[in-house]
Design a protein around this nucleic acid. Structure first.
Lengths: 338, 338
DNA sequence: CAACCGTCCGTAACCGGTTACATAACTCGC
DNA sequence: GCGAGTTATGTAACCGGTTACGGACGGTTG
């Protein structure tokens, strides 16, 4: 019942464990005949090496740990998909762990990785850098994603949220919108804060009034914001939500209330989730899959000694203009499909 | 630089490694004073146990391996999310590995799990059962998801694709549609085959003509099918795609061509991806997250000796009716938003 | 005081691999 | 026929934990 070990193979092939190891790992100091005996025995026993034992003696697990917060829908899958693609291309496995919003739990998740992975990918926009630094086993190489500040020795990859938000405001202004409301993301979330900053900066630059409504990255927050906007007396001709899900909630709520989008109020989001395309929602593309893949690539380079810079990277944002922010002056009636 | 080991802690606390192990694992045969010394030393050194070594001597990794095929978008994230939720609740980590369509690669992925995980979750609707059985390390408990046939000793969880497809056809018929075309999934895919079966069975039951167009689960296939339908002289009043993405592709292509949905042609899908709700697409809900969570629960029960039945489960499908299959007779013009 | 018991702790074996080092066997040159 | 050099192989230590086993110690009992 129990799986065969290297010693079982050695016994059956009538050689030593060292020879089995050498033969199966393709070292060249093994007689061809011996190698064949070993391979035959291994096949007969259905021997599969015990990766745990292997990584213990090699001090190499060929796995990388991924610690992510609770991500909204597609974001999560895209991120993991990008990571997995690069990881499997380079022969690594991904060990996944969700850290929920609590920082103690995060510490537990991070510690659980010790001794099973060669390095860590950590996305924790909601955890203070000192807390994080303390929670990550110090000798584990790691790459941070969307983290607050740089941790010493740990490269970070992040999106230029601020530039993205500014680009969107610029776009809205260029298309004739002047009263732009921002629906913010959750308090304490770095992405959310940077997007709000970019919005404020751009408004200031254009000498436009700024108005921020609270939100939490969920669709319902977008709906609530729409109600608020419709009920309020402040004039509003565009809504820029800190993420697509809120923009979508807002879009639906506005349309359900009979408001024409974009004729009366334009709507824009951030992230470019697949849904956005179907709803013709203008947004800022955040290629999270690529970020994941790059993070893995950086980490593996680091592990294999190929990355000596340890520099952080900022990925440029990309403005995606669709029908929900069509130019204010010209608005053909039914140009709403992808 | 290197991480502290249990021996470092023992040295600093001036006790033996055995005491350190006992103290840190909460065994009761340790004097309170000793335990404190150990904890103090461990904290000072920032000691984190090496999970790999631990699992080697305990023969328990507290991790479960997940081997999935290339899943389309949200399906993947939902599945992993459900698994992760249950796994982290019960103190297990998830080791992820994509197996692409190739069965050799699948074997590699499965073997790489040996010695790292206590059990396996395998979704492989495209791999022959014998091949699979041969590829899974025999002593690894595992739960199959959507697999072809039952493997001995390995419980399987699957959706009742056939019943779901029948339910959708029944619904279309009840709503007055008579010329229903099915867009099939990829050749050799079990889900696809069962859905097609259900479609054929229901058509036969209603004495309706059946017509199947080829597809591959991607949006483009849905678009191609739409063109085919529009170009063909065969009358068609409803399209039932084997998954939502194809239905969505078809829906867009039909609308772009000026066809009214559902007035001229109804469209239905399968899966109920989040997008479906926004597009008011009728579909069969496949609660993949719950399936993932259940699979994890079953596997852990198996690992901990709580599940003795090893029985397979079939999860019932759920029909979700929305605007794209509204009754044929009454079709209010603009009832298309969620 | 000896016998006995319980508690706490340390030594060393073990999990399943890899590999440094020692050794054996074999070739080659002289 | 012998030493040097090369190559294939085996022995045992090691990776970092856990734990069976036994010893030391102190307290109780007869």
């Amino acid at each position: 019942m129990a799986e065969a070990t290297i010693r079982d193979v050695a016994r059956r092939a009538e050689v030593s464990v060292a020879s089995v190891s050498r033969a199966l790992n393709g070292l060249d100091n093994v007689r061809a005949e011996t190698r064949e005996k070993v391979i035959k025995a291994a096949n007969e026993l259905g021997y599969v090496p015990h990766a745990g034992a292997r990584s213990l003696s090699l001090a190499r697990a060929h796995a990388i740990g991924v610690v992510l917060p609770d991500l909204h829908g597609e974001f999560f899958s895209e991120c993991v998909r990008g990571m997995d693609k690069e990881a499997s291309r380079r022969g690594y496995l991904l060990l996944l762990s969700n850290m929920h919003d609590d920082s103690d739990q995060a510490a537990v998740a991070l510690r659980a990785m010790r001794g099973r992975v060669d390095g860590l990918l950590v996305m924790a926009p909601h955890i203070a850098p000192e807390t994080l630094e303390h929670a990550i086993p110090p000798a584990l190489p790691s790459v941070m994603l969307n983290s607050h500040a740089d941790l010493p020795g740990r490269p970070a990859l992040r999106f230029d949220n601020r530039a993205g938000a500014e680009a969107m405001v610029d776009h809205l202004v260029a298309n004739g919108y002047r009263h732009i409301v921002h629906i913010a993301g959750p308090e304490g979330n770095l992405d959310a804060a940077q997007r709000a900053d970019g919005y404020l900066a751009a408004c200031a630059r254009h000498a436009l009034p700024a108005r921020i409504l609270p939100g939490d990255f969920n669709e319902e927050a977008g709906e609530a914001a729409a109600r608020e906007i419709l009920a309020s007396s402040t004039p509003t001709d565009a809504v820029f939500a800190a993420n697509d899900m809120m923009a979508i909630g807002c879009l639906h709520a506005l349309r359900s209330a009979g408001t024409q989008v974009p004729e009366q109020i334009a709507v824009a989001g951030f992230d470019d989730v697949p849904l956005a395309r179907y709803l013709s929602l203008s947004t800022i593309r955040v290629n999270i899959a690529e970020m994941g893949a790059r993070a893995v690539a950086r980490l593996i380079d680091l592990l294999e000694g190929k990355d000596l810079t340890r520099a952080s990277e900022t990925l440029p944002p990309e403005l995606v203009t669709r029908a929900t922010t069509a130019p204010r002056t010209a608005h053909p009636n039914g140009a709403a499909h992808a």
